[in-house]
Amino acid sequence: MLLYVDAQYASPYAMSVFVGLKEKNISFDMQTLDLGAGANHMPDYAVTSLTQRVPTLIEGDFSLSESSAITEYLDEIHAGVALYPAAPKAKARARQIQAWLRSDLLPIRQERSTEVLFYRPSDAPLSIAAGQAAQKLFDAADRLLAPGREHLFDTWCIADVDLALMLNRLVLNGDAVPVRLADYAKRQWERASVQAWVNLARPPL
């Protein structure tokens, strides 16, 4: 398999797929694209990636983009660590969490970009809009994470990575985060597959 990712290894969506491949113990190669230079819109890649985005996974003559579609595909065709819960309602909830984190909370993503996670923190305070988005994140995460539970569900799943990443945009920047949620995010960040992505050698910005 070949996985296309961004040149800075900073895409949260590429990270999610990378972690999924590592958890499944699937052998794969990576190729980077300079998104700032528009490499994802070049004709060759546009033919390869339907959405012209990263990540895109290539397997023989099959290509698939959009991270949650890729991790669902990997879970269906490969044995090993499950990326999603088996129970239908729990699996639906995990998909809901992924879709929500990818489509909402824009002020957090704008003011606490993934540069905070992989390069340097921001010294700008959160705007009112970002503060409101953060509170919405905390309220939802608090409801989702049962007291005393280490993961969203009975065992780890890929949605834990996505939720921890969103929380860590704030935690690793030094912003105020409820202790229980900060501890959860830090635990998820210590997972070996996550650390494999965190510790990739990144080019300077």
Score class of each variant (00 low, 15 high):
Ile158Gln: 10
Glu115Ile: 12
Tyr84Trp: 15
Lys22Ser: 06
Leu33Ser: 03
Asp61Trp: 06
Gly38Ser: 05
Arg202Asn: 03
Leu50Pro: 03
Ile97Ser: 03
Val47Trp: 09
Arg187Ile: 07
Lys22Pro: 03
Val171Ser: 04
Ala39Lys: 09
Asn173Tyr: 01
Asp162Ala: 10
Tyr13Arg: 08
Gln110Phe: 09
Leu167Tyr: 12
Arg120Ile: 06
Ser65Gly: 08
Leu126Phe: 01
Arg109Gln: 12
Tyr119Lys: 10
Asp175Leu: 04
Ser193Lys: 04
Val116Ala: 01
Ile108Thr: 08
Ala176Pro: 05
Lys136Gly: 04
Thr71His: 08
Ser49Cys: 13
Ile108Asn: 05
Ser11Val: 02
Cys157Lys: 10
Asp154Thr: 11
Thr56His: 02
Gly60Gln: 01
Met1Gly: 01
Arg149Val: 00
Ala130Val: 11
Ala133Ile: 09
Val161Thr: 13
Leu181Thr: 07
Leu167Arg: 10
Pro125Glu: 04
Ile77Ala: 01
Leu167Asn: 11
Ala146Met: 12
Ile77His: 08
Ala176Ser: 15
Pro43Gln: 05
Ile108Cys: 08
Ala141Phe: 10
Tyr119His: 11
Val81Trp: 02
Gln8Met: 12
Pro85Met: 01
Phe62Ile: 09
Ala79Thr: 14
Ser65Trp: 02
Arg149Thr: 05
Met30Val: 14
Arg93Thr: 15
Val17Asn: 09
Leu33Cys: 03
Gln96Glu: 14
Trp100Glu: 15
Leu57Trp: 11
Leu205Gly: 13
Gly60Arg: 04
Leu50Asp: 04
Ile97Met: 02
Gln8Thr: 10
Val19Asp: 03
Met15Phe: 08
Pro178Ser: 10
Lys89Phe: 09
Ala146Pro: 00
Gln8Leu: 15
Asp44His: 08
Leu117Trp: 02
Asp6Ala: 05
Tyr119Met: 10
Gln110Trp: 01
Asp29Ser: 14
Asp29Lys: 11
Asn25Ile: 01
Ala133Leu: 09
Leu35Glu: 08
Ala10Thr: 10
Pro204Asp: 09
Ala10Gly: 11
Tyr73Asn: 06
Glu72Asn: 06
Lys91Met: 06
Arg191His: 12
Glu115Leu: 12
Ala14Phe: 00
His151Ser: 12
Arg120Leu: 06
